[in-house]
């Protein structure tokens, strides 16, 4: 969805989601490995909660938020009236069919990158329990191969699964943090498996170094 297609109500709802995210989660962005940049980036983050993408958006400066889209699962976000409204009118989203990622779906993402927009991607593909990082799906590899110059920024989100885990409706406020790590690229000649392992490790080490992902439970 482009910004122009969104309703005014959507904009108001988006602002209220960002403001409530700040209240319930704090969620100051920590720019540990890079500074906010106008350049095109793919933010790859660990995924444990619906609060994840509002948290990343809230951590971005407002002018970058306006040109950053979230890549999300189509079958989930088209699964009900409210979800569909949120995905289509409130946030900038690119919806993908998870099971059969067809060529035109990459086309949507690549077109967004070519327009100079940034993407937020959850390479695990689905929300986890917060205990481990799940294996990455290959979409990010194909995207990186199509646009190798685009910076890939690992983003570690802490505590989102304690704020609003899968299946929960009422948030339990808790300080979350969003840590932006060292940008990376697809190396020339790097194969899929080693690339996915490398960026997965980069994301984990962003969390280990800068987040507090060692909370006692």
């Amino acid at each position: 969805m482009t910004a122009g297609a969104r309703h005014l109500d959507g904009g108001i709802i988006q602002s209220s989601v960002i403001v409530s995210t700040r209240w319930f989660a704090g969620g100051c962005g920590r720019w540990a490995g890079c500074a906010p940049s106008d350049g095109t980036r793919i933010y790859i983050a660990n995924h444990t909660s619906h609060a994840d993408f509002p948290l990343i958006l809230a951590a971005l400066p407002a002018h970058l938020r306006e040109r950053t889209s979230v890549v999300a699962a189509a079958e989930y976000w088209r699964g009900g009236k409210v979800r569909r409204y949120v995905a289509e009118q409130v946030f900038r989203t690119i919806l993908l069919q998870r099971d059969h990622v067809a060529l035109n779906q990459y086309a949507q993402m690549i077109a967004a990158l070519d327009r100079g927009e940034s993407l937020i991607l959850f390479p695990e593909g689905t929300r986890g329990s917060g205990q481990h990082l799940q294996p990455f799906r290959c979409g990010i590899y194909h995207l990186a191969r199509a646009r190798p110059q685009v910076e890939i920024v690992p983003v570690w989100i802490d505590n989102a699964y304690r704020l609003l885990p899968k299946g929960a409706l009422v948030p339990a406020p808790i300080e979350c943090s969003v840590t932006f790590g060292d940008p990376t690229h697809l190396y020339p000649g790097e194969d899929k498996k080693s690339f996915l392992e490398r960026i997965s490790e980069a994301l984990l080490s962003t969390g280990r170094k800068n987040g507090n992902n060692c909370y006692r439970h």
Partner: peptide, 20 residues
Amino acid sequence: ALREFSAVAVSHPTDRHVSA
């Protein structure tokens, strides 16, 4: 303050309603 304290206090996912 409570939000910050919650991040270090021991709690289980089952405690979310008590916390909220």
